[in-house]
Nucleic acid binder design. Structure first.
Lengths: 117, 117
DNA sequence: ACTAGTATTCGACATATTTCGAAATATAGA
DNA sequence: TCTATATTTCGAAATATGTCGAATACTAGT
């Protein structure tokens, strides 16, 4: 692989992490920071404990832990112990970085909300 | 896995496809539709033949073909034979869909180009 | 110190992925 | 039809991943 920067490698790691349905579901739970229609604050990123994230997913706790570790290693989520629990959340900068990767500047017209008002 | 729609599964497939450095590089080559600073037309998506996409990547043709098939199966790229060659390109709608997945509406301010002038 | 709740590490196993070379297929042109 | 170019298909081998259960670690209360 000649032409691959370390930046690209980290991107690939993130995509690989999202490439598993269980991990994608976890990521979606964390990124849906407010109820539909609601609007949540910038500083108020949604946090879930490991146990909460596993609710409804039929996987063993050890498997859940493994997936969370993958998400964390790739840089997609942050984790920090809060008493008995470990909280997980998404750094908003990560969402910007990923959205920016796919954002095609030639398609401004299609978004229709950027022009001078 | 209780809570996973077929839509989410297809998303996961796309991310999995992008999770390989070789495939990510191919995808980037196809999505950089114009030179830096330039602006390319909507209808004029960038096309590269299989051989062109493999240039500079040190992988066997059969491996390249395999990766292209993965990208195609996941829905990330389109392919069509053009004489001796097979051309590849990205459906712009795919870029929108993926960008939309990461786009966080609570972060308008961080983009810095939306407020009243 | 003991216990209960929460989460991680470890070892094992089945399955999937990446990669290649050799052979096969498709196309255009002499 | 024969040849050269472009790409795919087909095994096969090495490595990686997803999953679990059992054992371990961390924390807050009693």
């Amino acid at each position: 692989m000649s032409n691959t920067s370390s930046d690209d490698i980290q991107l690939a790691e993130m995509f690989k992490a999202l490439g598993n349905p269980h991990r994608l579901l976890i990521f979606q739970r964390l990124s849906n920071c407010c109820l539909p229609g609601t609007r949540c604050d910038l500083e108020q990123t949604m946090r879930f404990s490991v146990g909460q994230l596993g609710e409804g997913m039929e996987i063993a706790p050890s498997t859940l832990s493994h997936h969370l570790k993958e998400l964390h290693r790739s840089g997609l989520i942050k984790m920090s112990r809060q008493g008995k629990r470990v909280d997980c959340w998404i750094d908003p900068a990560v969402l910007n970085r990923l959205a920016g990767f796919f954002y095609n500047p030639s398609e401004n017209e299609m978004r229709g909300d950027r022009d001078v008002g």
